[in-house]
């Protein structure tokens, strides 16, 4: 029984439980919402279908089986590598994901970078003189960035650039990084900026709070008493320690982004994982939604594990835990 207590076994166990929970919840939610694949694909015409037609359609979509059977059929498929097929486009979910996921990952990585590049230096700046004008100004703009909804910022930015400068790279149809790196990066600029601006405020606040707390630590005073010059003190002793909570924060944000930045993907027409879920939902493509959500959840869990690894690099104490 000893191995059950081992931290790694526990983490993996927790992860599996989380994924099972997510899959059941998605499954139930999809079926609680009124309507199914038949009403979604036939629209109002679904009402004119004869009972026989409905029955054969239900048999076709597998809706005639009991809910547990439907769930376990799907689960068995997932476990054997079959994520299901989109019935409207006749493309497998695996293929769909293979196309969408790289775009989402690219978007998430770039957005996190922008969020960190904005948030950490501004957090340092705000913490440098707490309560003074510099601090107040950064805090105010961070609050502003946090409160402006990203769909608004995205729309305003995009239409302003399009109308006044005729620059709207996202209008030409999406190119992946492999297909056309130049155009792809141009297309990514706006969504990355919009997402980065929404990530920066929490990063800024975390950095600022951590710096202020660490500055009051005994070991900082001891370093001063050792004669460490101010600049070195700020970087080697204070910032280095302050980054530990920032890592946690960033990991969480990254996880959310991998779930698909739905708004940004929709407005800037980026075929990412968020759009895939949305498309599946409007078509009531049960398999697409269930499998994609499961993939997103898996990514989230993986990112959390990754955060733990980074944690071990920045916090030596985590290495023995």
């Amino acid at each position: 029984m000893m191995y059950l207590r081992h931290p790694i076994t526990r983490r993996v166990g927790e992860a599996v439980l989380t994924l099972v929970g997510v899959s059941v919840l998605t499954f139930v939610l999809l079926r609680v919402v009124p309507g199914n694949q038949i009403t979604a694909s036939y629209g109002t015409a679904a009402g004119e279908l004869s009972p026989e037609q409905v029955r054969s359609l239900e048999a076709y979509y597998g809706l005639d089986k009991s809910l547990p059977v439907q769930y376990f059929d799907w689960l068995r498929g997932v476990l054997t590598g079959n994520l299901g097929v989109s019935t409207t486009s006749h493309v497998s979910v695996a293929q769909l994901t293979g196309q969408a996921l790289p775009n989402t990952i690219e978007l998430a990585v770039l957005s996190i970078l922008v969020g960190l590049l904005l948030g950490v230096p501004l957090g340092v700046l705000a913490a440098s003189r707490p309560g003074k004008s510099r601090d107040n100004l950064t805090q105010l703009s961070s609050l502003l960035a946090l409160s402006v909804p990203s769909f608004l910022l995205a729309t305003v930015l995009a239409s302003w650039l399009a109308n006044n400068f005729g620059w709207y790279p996202n209008g030409e149809g999406f190119r992946t990084l492999v297909q056309d790196p130049g155009l792809n990066l141009q297309q990514m600029i706006l969504p990355v900026l919009v997402l980065g601006i929404s990530i920066a405020p929490p990063v800024l606040q975390t950095t600022r709070t951590a710096i202020l707390a660490i500055r009051a630590e005994d070991y900082v005073r001891t370093a001063r008493a050792k004669g460490v010059p101010e600049r070195r003190l700020q970087t080697r002793h204070i910032l280095r320690n302050a980054l530990i909570p920032v890592v946690t924060m960033t990991g969480l944000q990254f996880g959310f982004l991998l779930g698909g930045a739905l708004v940004a993907e929709q407005i800037f027409a980026i075929p990412g994982i968020g759009r895939q879920v949305l498309l599946g939902l409007t078509q009531k493509e049960y398999a697409v939604v269930q499998s994609t959500v499961l993939i997103i959840a898996t990514m989230f869990v993986l990112v959390n594990l990754l955060t733990d690894l980074v944690y071990r690099v920045v916090d030596p104490k985590a290495r023995v835990r």
């Binding site: 001891t222 008493a225 004669g227 080697r236 320690n241």
Partner: peptide
Amino acid sequence: MTAIRGNRIGLVPQDPMTNLNPVM
């Protein structure tokens, strides 16, 4: 003072548990 601290004046602080930088 920065040049003097640690060089001409050494300090042994009170609580050894909190006075060393944990990530160094």
